[in-house]
Simulated scan of single mutants.
Amino acid sequence: MAVIIGVARETAAGECRVAVTPETCRKLVAAGAIVRAERGLGRGAHFPDLAYVDAGAQLVDSADDALAAADLVLCVQPPPADVIARLQHGAVLVGMLQPQADPARAAALEALGVVAFPLERLPRTTRAQAMDVLSSQAGMAGYKAMLIAAQLAPRFFPMLTTAAGTIRPSKVLVVGAGVAGLQAIATAKRLGAQVEGFDVRPETREQIESLGGKFLDLGVSAVGEGGYARALTDEERVEQQRRLGEHLKTVDVVVCTAAVPGRPAPKIVSAAMVTGMKPGSVIVDLAAETGGNCEFTRPGDTIEHDGVLVAGPLDLASLGALHASEMYARNVFNFANLLLRDGALAFDWDDELLAKTVWPPRPSASPEQ
């Protein structure tokens, strides 16, 4: 019997992305799967129902109809615990699931014996790049964060020569040079700003400079594992803050993107630093969803402190839902391909991408059919 793949509309507030686009639906059907999609699935990302029908999907009227009999469920955000409870026993669930963040969700997954693959746990290897949802979605988030900064800033980004005189370019600093930070740097450069990038990992200098930015060297290094930064020591943090605080007095726009996986976002921009910035300056904190890099960040809000705007936008990738969905759905399809063998589900636990992504973690095992 063919594998039934279920996809329901996302229910999280502000979430417009989809885990299956018409493009990847067609590929899943070609691989021998039956795709059941809830009506209106792609509305927020501008994919009409007819496009899914043309791609071979079966449209159904509710999430229960899409998921209840599904062997494989694909999603963006984790389904609520009550939805998980209605999945069939032993179903496979793939998405950004964060099971450890919600005890009720974790309990529901375990109670039904759901084989969960939280894609945020995917090893960061060369082979996994085509499945790396964190990177693909961070790119959109960095792009949107810089556009928000440009909108909030009371100044032009590029240098302009006008009959009323010359306008100097805005000075933009991007804190954190991961995927989101590098996209933010590239976007600011395209908008004509004078761009700097700061990261405690010195190896990011070349990447920042390749995008036309200037590397801000504060003399603090925190090289970590897996391409991420490690947490700074207390002494390193004090010295970093002192030097960064002085530099921020000259900056017009700051976009914060620094993150440490599995932990709250590091506090990099202190209240004292914000107080020392020029009136009219703007901070956009992309790390707001994990607490923010700035002490004044309020997730989901924009506040003003002594003339400085501090924005903590949420769901940034969802603001570019069409292209973000196309990238995310391709990531999901590439991972799902590891699970499909001759039209059936199979788990090769000797494959590190499966073994290290599955939740709860399990010891290595021989391939199962």
Rank of each mutant, 00 (worst) to 15 (best):
A128N: 04
A130Y: 11
D132W: 13
V133Q: 03
V133M: 11
V133S: 07
S135I: 07
S136N: 12
S136D: 09
A138K: 01
G139V: 10
M140P: 09
M140E: 11
A141F: 05
A141H: 04
I148L: 15
A149F: 09
A150H: 10
Q151R: 14
L152P: 03
A153Y: 15
A153I: 05
P154K: 07
F156Y: 15
P158H: 08
M159I: 08
L160F: 14
T161F: 13
A164W: 12
T166R: 13
T166M: 15
R168M: 11
P169E: 07
P169V: 06
L173K: 01
V175F: 10
A180R: 04
Q183P: 04
I185K: 01
A186S: 10
A188R: 07
V195Y: 05
E196I: 08
G197K: 01
G197H: 03
D199L: 03
P202M: 02
E203H: 14
T204N: 01
I208F: 04
S210A: 12
G212Y: 07
G213K: 01
L216N: 02
D217N: 13
D217S: 04
G219M: 05
G219S: 04
G219E: 07
A222N: 03
G226A: 03
G227I: 07
G227L: 04
A229L: 00
R230M: 02
A231I: 13
D234I: 11
E235Y: 10
E235T: 15
